[in-house]
């Protein structure tokens, strides 16, 4: 009895120590020397592994930062400027101050504005529906409302509004990782400056058809009339392919373009109500509220 125990103890400890020695040498042999700063930088990162920086996860981002030592091309949208400042401190660099961005849905073709003409049945995937058809409203550029962006969002920041059938982005939750921008097969979503007090102005339409056909499918389509272009004092608005686009870098949020738009396709978000009535405009949109 005793012999068995002694034998087992001895043989097991022998195996243990031999393995330990082997492991030690193997570890020495295959040791990877890594810049310790990678770990430090990695710890400062939010760890969401969302890919919003364009790299495969936070670790890869940290490696890239330390390797290149260049902050100008890399940015963590989740952590924002605060995180980037801390990282810059670790690396002994100066971080550029970047305005926070947010995903913006550039389509206002709600069920009321762009009535349904045919009904779609099938896989609930915008990517597939986009291949199959122009969509229920007939607008070839409009939101299909099947929620590929919702699925792509890791931060639960987008949901489809039941009444309008359009996606809504949450101001608090969106970190502008850009996953929805890639997911949308129609490139409706754009990352734009979040703006002070979440105030934003943008053209909520990307339809490039001529005015007539565009309006046929959607009341609030941009018809490319160019009135807003003339109105803008900062050259922030350009007109291309029957479509106006407001450059968010140049826009000063002066609110002059919004009242002149005859179809109401320019949207203002989170501004206080106007004091004087802004002329006779064909405003058909209901006030947009964003949580």
């Amino acid at each position: 009895m005793n012999e068995t125990i002694v034998f087992a103890v001895i043989s097991l400890s022998a195996i243990g120590s031999i393995s330990a020695v082997i492991l030690y040498f193997v570890a020495q042999k295959f040791k990877v020397i890594e810049d310790p700063r990678i770990d430090i930088v990695n710890e400062k990162l939010p760890g969401a592994n969302c890919g919003g920086c364009g790299l495969a996860g936070c670790r890869a981002f940290a490696e890239e930062l330390v390797k290149t030592g260049d902050l100008s091309k890399l940015n963590c949208p989740v952590g924002g400027s605060e995180t980037m400042r801390q990282i810059a401190e670790v690396l002994g660099l100066v971080a550029e101050e970047k305005d926070p961005l947010i995903a913006v849905i550039r389509c206002n073709g709600s069920r009321a504005n762009a009535p349904v003409k045919v009904s779609y049945e099938g896989a609930s995937s915008c990517a597939f529906a986009h291949v199959l058809t122009a969509g229920e409203s007939g607008c070839p550029n409009g939101c299909l409302g099947l929620g590929d962006c919702v699925v792509s969002c890791q931060f639960d920041a987008i949901y489809i509004d039941d009444i309008t059938g359009l996606p809504v982005v949450s101001n608090e939750k969106c970190i502008a990782c850009g996953a929805c921008v890639t997911a949308c097969p129609r490139s409706i979503i754009e990352l734009r400056k979040k703006g002070k007090k979440d105030r934003r102005i943008f053209v909520s339409c990307i339809n490039t058809e001529k005015g007539g056909p565009a309006r046929k499918n959607c009341q609030v389509a941009c018809i490319g009339c160019g009135k807003c272009v003339k109105e803008c004092a900062y050259d922030a608005i350009t007109l291309q392919n029957n479509l106006a686009y407001i450059d968010h870098e140049k826009c000063k949020l002066c609110r002059k373009c919004e009242p002149v738009c005859p179809t109401g396709s320019i949207l203002e978000l989170n501004f206080p109500p106007r004091k004087e009535k802004a002329g006779e405009t064909l405003k058909t949109t209901e006030p947009v509220t964003v949580e």
């Binding site: 349904v116 045919v118 009904s119 779609y120 049945e121």
Partner: peptide
């Protein structure tokens, strides 16, 4: 009623 569209 509305025409239905779906893939084959």
């Amino acid at each position: 009623s509305l025409l239905t569209i779906s893939g084959s």
